[in-house]
Design a protein around this nucleic acid. Structure first.
Length: 487
RNA sequence: GCCGCCGUAGCUCAGCUGGUAGAGCAGCGGACUUUUAAUCCGAGGGUCGCAGGUUCGAGUCCUGCCGGCGGCACCA
């Protein structure tokens, strides 16, 4: 890593320090407070898109950005300046600037931030260029930028020092702009459908709404342990009880589990709930939302997000791929035996629902490349979902998959408080049997249901994974600005 | 947590069965008024991830640790 770079041996940093001091000695502030009236480089390019090679103009522009390259010519030099919108060449001439200014411009280091006033022309080679009439250093860079040619490829440095990745790699900048567009499209889509955006507690006295281990922390003044939320579900449903009818929350969840290409301990989730809707209404809205996102970001990959998506019953999906009918095989030991016969690990401590999960994630999920809904899950793995209106033993729930990855989980919400209480009690039994992810009993949630919750459909969509799909990223760490790494 | 691969200059990389650590870019000094990874000349720059060990001698072999990537386990 680069943390030794300050050692006396390395004069790369010393040179920059000396230049910083030289600027101050010459009465030039290396870190001025502002630089008004800057025009994006892309807009300068737009203004002169029709100029021919060799053509001159009287048009002046003020741009600002990072010094990205320099090609010296003695009494003349070309430099490239890069801002968020693009890159432009500037031409420095000693006959325009005078010797002193010329020397100062050439003494700048790659990576310095500068502001330039220049006159537009197109060089003989056809490159739009600003002839520098004046310039100002806007911030001295005391560390060298990544290699201008090879860029920055070291994955660890790219993730630990994302600023360097953003400086060196335009595709990283594009990816995170795409991520922003995904999120703004989600908001617009739901706002337009009459949803209310809300914020519920991240720091919670009791966690719930998903099967996962939480992060635990401590509130000193209250002297009690608190949990970082693993889901927003229970609070959002209380808002449906409260009559908000359509709510969504876009924010981070935290789960104290392993890290891999599809899991980061903190991750962004969209949950939305709609009164008077069931899970099939939610499926419709989900595929329309993702389709809207794909269009907004100009998705052009292999996946076909256009509705309607493929729909398969979960029990069929499992039976077709493994020969096991989980409606028939409800005994834990029998299921474990059938799975071992297929060469799957089936731990002795695993509960029946954990085994079903394993079956789906090992034998079904990897095969779901095109967007697909798996419908109707066993009640044992879905303590917050409403019983299926016609299929015994199942709930009205779907999960959405694409590219072999789960991206959404939704159900017709359980709104019968007495049954919810029984489901929580069942979870208690699973917890007693050793399932660390069984959901804790949340009495204040049940009490809210007793107030009366309308029939409701709800969903959680993994935003990081959605961004992975839209950008083709193979790891969640590529779509999270600062992913979790060991210290 | 387990297994495999990886860690050399600011960046990108080479370094053979163990024999005094290299290149390009960047930086430094110099030349050059239309360059596009500008070019040319010159002189620099290293805790070879860390700590032990084997050896006359370790970037190279062995052990442990740290970090990254991938897989398994767990999960969304």
């Amino acid at each position: 890593m680069a943390e030794r770079a300050g050692s006396p041996d390395s004069d790369v940093l010393g040179d920059r320090r000396r230049k910083l001091e030289a600027l101050r000695a010459a009465g030039i502030e290396p870190f001025p407070h502002e630089f008004d009236g800057v025009e994006p480089i892309a807009s300068v390019r737009e203004s002169h898109a029709d100029l021919a090679a060799g053509e001159e103009t009287e048009a002046t522009h003020r741009v600002a950005g990072r010094l990205a390259a320099r090609r010296g010519q003695g009494k003349m030099a070309f430099l490239d300046i890069e801002d968020r919108s693009g890159r432009i060449q500037i031409q420095a001439r000693s006959d325009v600037l005078g010797t002193e200014q010329m020397d100062r411009l050439l003494a700048l280091d790659l990576g310095d931030l500068i502001g330039v006033d220049g006159t537009a022309f197109v060089s003989r080679r056809g490159e739009l260029t600003l002839r520098v009439d004046g310039f100002r250093i806007l911030a001295k860079s005391l560390r060298p930028p990544p290699d201008k040619h090879h860029g920055l490829t070291d994955v660890e440095t790219r993730h630990r020092h994302r600023e360097l990745d953003l400086i060196a790699n335009p595709e990283t900048r594009r990816l995170f702009v795409t991520r922003a567009r995904v999120i703004s499209t989600v908001r617009r889509f739901l706002d337009d459908a009459g949803y209310v955006e809300v914020e519920t507690p991240i720091l919670q006295p009791l966690y719930g709404g998903a099967m996962a281990r939480p992060f635990t922390t401590h509130h000193n003044a209250l002297d009690r342990d608190m949990y970082l939320r693993i889901a927003t579900e229970l609070y959002l449903k209380r808002l449906i009880v409260g009559g908000l009818e359509r709510v969504y929350e876009l924010g981070k969840n935290f789960r104290n589990e392993g890290v891999d290409t599809t899991h980061n301990p903190e991750f962004t989730v969209l949950e939305f709930y709609e009164a008077y809707a069931d899970y099939l209404d939610i499926a419709d809205r989900c595929e329309r939302l993702v389709w809207a996102v794909a269009q907004a970001v100009g998705y052009e990959g292999e996946l076909d997000f256009q509705p309607p998506w493929r729909r398969e019953l979960l029990v069929d999906a499992i039976r077709d791929r493994t020969g096991i009918d989980i409606v028939e095989v409800r005994d834990r030991e029998e299921l474990a035996g059938r799975m071992r016969a297929l060469g799957l690990a089936a731990g002795d401590e695993d509960t029946w629902p954990q085994l079903v999960d394993e079956l789906v994630s090992k034998r079904v999920e990897p095969e779901l490349v095109q967007p697909t809904f798996l419908l109707d899950y066993p009640v044992e793995v879905s303590p917050l979902a409403k019983r299926h209106r016609s299929a015994p033993g199942l709930v009205e729930r779907f999960e959405a998959f694409a590219s072999g990855m789960e991206i959404a989980n939704a159900f017709t919400e359980l709104n019968d408080p007495d049954e919810q209480r029984r489901r929580f009690e069942e979870q208690r039994r699973y917890a007693a049997a050793g399932d660390e992810e069984a959901q804790p009993y949340d009495e204040s949630f049940v009490r809210a249901l007793e107030q009366g919750m309308p029939p409701t459909g709800g969903i959680g969509i993994g935003i990081d994974r959605l961004v992975m799909l839209m950008t083709g990223a193979r790891s969640i760490r590529e779509v999270v600005l600062f992913p979790a790494l060991r210290s």
